[in-house]
Simulated assay, not measured.
Amino acid sequence: LEAESSITATCLQHQEEALRQEGAAINIQTIQDSGGCVLFGVDCTKLGECVSLQGRVFDRVVFNFPHCGRKSGVKKNRELLKNFFLSCIQVLAEDGEVHVSLCNGQGGTPVDKPKCEWHNSWQVVAMATEAHLILSAVCPFENENYPSYKCTGYSFPCISVQITHMEEVVEGENVHYNIPTELSDYVFRRFLSPDSVHPVKLVQDFFLKELLAHWSVSMATASAPFLIAAKRLHSCCHCVDNSQCYSRA
């Protein structure tokens, strides 16, 4: 910890129950000896309602390996993440960060290995956007820094990616292509619609805010085809060659 930093640890269980866990007493004492404090009976999805946290903001909010308990399934754990993120922003400093540790495959991010179908993951990025939070980094969990840490729980099932066949008409020609099945319901999502909380929309809003601070900016909307023929692409992007385009079989 930095010289002026301190830890506030919270636990859902009450103190008597928490102390029954192996190593809990030592961990609690270590935090207290370092100038931190431990709060019991705190619901991570209701941080703003915790009396002991009233009026306080934090630079980092960390949740290592969240889980609803037992075989609760991905939907309940997604809900846990969403409510946790919504709760975090009530106690998070303006430039604060939220750190969440997940098992490989749970998050549904591009760096997950093994990579599971998105609809079978916890969709951590999508859940974070519900609280207007954006993924800024993905780092490995360095368990060697936690000598007393023990991995427990249930294995996370990974299912092979299924493919859906798609067909579109591009400049009068039928074009066939394949996409992962889990994305088929999201291909034509309106990421930039006024009510969207997708990271793309949040980034756009941020850029517009900064631009408007210096210049007069107006938004123009126009529909664009999902697929563009190579000939049309070459007419507006001369630096693109055929090796960078998909071709019809």
Rank of each mutant, 00 (worst) to 15 (best):
F63A: 02
F63G: 04
F63H: 12
F63V: 01
N64H: 15
N64Q: 13
P66H: 12
P66V: 07
P66T: 11
P66F: 06
H67G: 12
H67W: 15
C68G: 15
G69P: 11
G69I: 08
G69K: 07
R70M: 13
R70K: 11
R70T: 10
R70V: 08
K71A: 14
S72Y: 11
S72M: 10
G73L: 08
V74I: 14
K75Q: 15
K76T: 09
N77C: 07
R78G: 02
R78D: 04
E79R: 09
E79M: 09
L80C: 03
L80S: 05
K82L: 08
N83W: 05
N83C: 06
F85D: 07
F85V: 03
L86G: 04
S87R: 07
S87K: 06
S87I: 01
C88L: 02
C88H: 03
I89G: 02
I89K: 03
Q90L: 14
Q90D: 15
Q90C: 10
V91K: 06
V91M: 02
L92N: 04
L92T: 01
E94Y: 00
D95M: 04
D95A: 08
V98D: 03
H99N: 08
H99G: 04
V100T: 03
S101A: 15
S101R: 00
S101M: 00
L102N: 00
L102H: 00
L102A: 00
C103F: 08
C103W: 02
N104T: 06
N104H: 06
G105V: 04
G105H: 00
Q106I: 04
Q106L: 07
G107W: 01
G107Q: 06
G107T: 01
G107H: 01
G108I: 09
G108Y: 02
G108R: 04
T109V: 15
T109E: 12
V111S: 14
D112A: 11
D112M: 06
D112N: 14
P114N: 11
P114S: 07
C116L: 05
C116P: 07
C116F: 01
E117D: 12
W118R: 14
W118Q: 10
W118H: 15
W118K: 14
W118N: 11
H119C: 14
H119E: 13
N120D: 13
S121G: 14
S121W: 09
S121Y: 09
W122E: 13
W122K: 10
Q123N: 08
V124W: 04
V124Y: 02
V124D: 02
V124G: 00
A126M: 10
A126S: 11
M127K: 15
M127I: 06
M127H: 08
T129A: 15
T129Y: 07
T129K: 09
T129N: 15
E130P: 07
E130V: 02
A131R: 05
L133I: 08
L133T: 09
L133N: 07
L133M: 13
L133S: 04
I134P: 03
I134C: 08
S136N: 07
